Amino acid sequence: MISDKRVYVIAEIGINHNGDIDKAVEMIRKAKDAGCDAVKFQKRTIDIVYTKEELARLRDNVFGPTNGDLKRGLEFGKDEYDAIDKLTRELGIDWFASPWDEPSVDFLMQYDTPYLKVASAMVTDRDFLVHCARTRRPLLVSTGMCDLPMVRSAVETIEGAGGEIACLYHCTSTYPTRDDEINLLGINTLRAAFPGLPIGFSGHEQGILPSVCAAAMGAVSVERHVTLSRNDWGSDQKASLEMDEVAEMISQIRRFEVVKGDGILRVYDDEKPIAEKLRRNDTLQAA
């Protein structure tokens, strides 16, 4: 669970499973092996999220000739989510998803997941935010494509409807995000604006350094898109980390959690023989 004691790392599988439950299973297992605390998916009711015209648009893909064929082919249903729920419980890793419409919220509520994720694309939809808040499931909220007044409106809407925000994520919704658009100081801005909320980082950049830096700046949770291979087909693959990168990122975050210490200045036992060897005099009394 998210706390200020240990960075909660989320592997955003999203739709990078390409509609293949076997690939999703492999990704869950590898995310667990890499040290992730949770995996996240995306859930849509296709005929609500997309217009008829958008679904009918020609777009040749592995599932058929239209964009609708692609969107339906990527979508998991109850059988797949039952399998995800069972596997994650066996492995001891959390899972949850980002719903993109109200029926998808209701679908996800049949599972005992720790959180419901509000994607950046949904954070300006008042009715949707209220629907999520009224589930009483703790919410993780991303803030891509938002300025501070927009974030404030979303937070006020959720809390006004009785919802709990378990983490508010600084985020830039470009794929992949350029370095000059990551703006990690936004973490500090959100912390100052919402002192009662835990602040995290959801990244779409290339490489692991910004995510490690986000943890060093106090992000209590880091979310990154993951993939088995960036060369795989799909819209999110290029903005994702491969599993060896995920493992290295988590290793660096966990090392930071050790090296940051507690801030108390002390003489360590291992320093005492060094002091005896190197110090000529010990005549200065502490104030």
Rank of each mutant, 00 (worst) to 15 (best):
G19A: 04
S142Y: 01
L55P: 05
I208C: 04
M145V: 12
G68W: 07
D47C: 05
E80Y: 05
P176C: 12
D270L: 04
A11V: 06
K5T: 03
A24M: 10
A24D: 09
V155W: 08
Y81V: 11
T88G: 00
P273G: 02
M249A: 11
D180N: 15
R44L: 04
A166C: 03
E80I: 11
S153E: 15
V49D: 12
A83D: 03
S235L: 08
F63S: 06
G64N: 10
V222P: 05
D232Y: 10
F256M: 10
P149C: 00
H204K: 07
Y111M: 15
T124M: 13
K78F: 05
A154E: 01
A161G: 08
A154H: 03
G14M: 11
T157N: 13
W95Q: 02
V118W: 07
T135S: 13
L116F: 13
A161R: 04
D20F: 00
I264S: 05
D262L: 00
T283Q: 08
G144C: 12
C167W: 06
V222L: 10
Y111G: 07
I187N: 01
V212I: 12
V25E: 15
D147R: 11
R191G: 00
G68V: 13
T113H: 14
V9L: 03
S211Q: 09
L190E: 10
A161E: 07
P114Y: 14
T113D: 06
T174V: 15
S229R: 08
A275V: 02
S98P: 07
A24C: 15
S3R: 01
I274K: 05
A31H: 06
V212H: 00
A214F: 04
V118R: 02
V151W: 01
S221P: 07
T174D: 07
H204L: 09
N231C: 07
G64H: 05
L190Y: 02
K43M: 14
S251C: 03
R178K: 15
Q42M: 13
V222H: 04
D37Y: 11
M1F: 02
I250R: 03
L87Q: 08
D60H: 13
D20Q: 04
M1C: 03
L91T: 09
E53G: 13
S3Q: 02
M122H: 08
D270Y: 06
V49Q: 12
C213W: 01
A34G: 01
L148T: 08
L197S: 04
S104R: 10
S120V: 14
D69V: 12
D79M: 12
R44S: 08
V105H: 09
T88P: 00
I274H: 04
L116R: 06
A97G: 12
V123F: 01
M145T: 12
A154C: 15
K71S: 06
R126Y: 11
C213G: 02
I250K: 07
R266W: 00
R72A: 02
F76S: 08
P273Y: 02
G35Q: 09
R137H: 12
F63R: 06
H17L: 09
Y175E: 09
K32M: 06
E26P: 00
I158D: 09
E248S: 08
S211L: 07
D244Y: 07
A193H: 05
A287W: 01
I46K: 03
L284T: 08
K260F: 02
D112K: 15
R178T: 08
N18H: 13
R178E: 14
M1W: 01
H131V: 06
N188G: 13
